[in-house]
Design a protein around this nucleic acid. Structure first.
Length: 254
DNA sequence: AATCGAATCAACCGCGTTGAC
DNA sequence: AGTCAACGCGGTTGATTCGAT
């Protein structure tokens, strides 16, 4: 297939965005939306390619972006979701309100991955976080109308309870053996079990309307959820399935 | 105070997917 | 059914900042 060039390089600006460009982009999207990223920069009078505009909006300018340090609950959720899903950052981001896939990816590579690796050897502690510094560069310069202070968690709850730890060896093989660790227990206390027919029948028999209860959905990102892909729907299904399976297992152990 | 390496994060690149024609 | 344009995602890069020496 012939691929369209990422952007015509001629005359188009690259590199860091200026506050003026940010304001132009935000103002244009607030007025006209972003139904066509390709055409947007021209309409808005920006010397950027549509891809660059889209990235800037999604990762930085969207009003529902939550800036600031990741909470321990968020970090725990990322670790657990990554264990289930692998590098499906957008799917993971969909479970963390206000967080972007890019941000989660960065946090994982610079922080959480090491923690997981070290804790797999010992019961390691979190690496020191020296993040607190420049998280407000443009966030402060560009407080959106609905944005909240970075310290606020917006009253949004995470979709997973921190104590639960659900992991798989491969995110793509949903019929594999998987382990479920007990709340607050050491990894040595985890037990492995095979998914059997009763699991699937029990889980799949759950009413459809229970899906989403207690779960954050992609709708949190209202702006982009207008075009859900079937792949994401499918992934949401499996994430939901795993989480509910986790609940079932936890209850059965009480 | 200067230098250097590590950490962080915004932005870019390229590929796969999707939908319109 | 085939082609193409556009979108979205994940991997990677490069600039900046920070801490240690």
């Amino acid at each position: 297939m012939v691929r369209a060039p990422c952007c015509e390089k001629m005359g188009l600006k690259r590199g860091p965005w200026t506050a003026e460009e940010d304001m132009t982009l935000v103002a244009h999207i607030e007025r006209h939306g972003h139904s066509n990223w390709r055409a947007l920069p021209k309409q808005a009078g920006l010397l950027r390619c549509g891809k660059s505009c889209r990235l800037r909006w999604i990762n930085y300018l969207r009003p529902d972006i939550k800036r600031g340090n990741f909470t321990s609950e968020e970090e725990e959720a990322i670790i657990q979701l990554h264990a289930m899903l692998g590098n499906r950052w957008s799917t993971i981001a969909a479970r963390l309100p206000g967080r972007t896939d890019n941000e989660i990816k960065n946090v994982w590579h610079t922080h959480l991955k090491k923690r997981v690796q070290s804790s797999s050897k010992t019961s390691g502690q979190a690496a020191p976080n020296r993040k607190a510094k420049k998280l407000s560069v443009a966030a402060s310069a560009l407080e959106g109308p609905t944005s909240e202070p970075a310290s606020s968690s917006s009253g949004q709850s995470l979709s997973m309870s921190p104590g639960q730890s659900l992991s798989t060896s491969s995110a793509d093989d949903y019929s594999m053996a998987w382990s479920l660790e007990n709340t607050g227990s050491s990894s040595s206390e985890s037990e492995e079990f095979q998914i059997d027919d009763s699991f699937w029948s029990e889980t799949l028999a759950m009413s459809v309307d229970s899906f989403g209860s207690g779960m954050e959905t992609n709708d949190t990102f209202g702006v982009d959820s207008a075009s859900p892909s079937s792949t994401n729907d499918e992934m949401d299904f499996w994430v939901t399935l795993f989480m509910q399976a986790s609940d079932i297992q936890s209850l059965s152990q009480i």
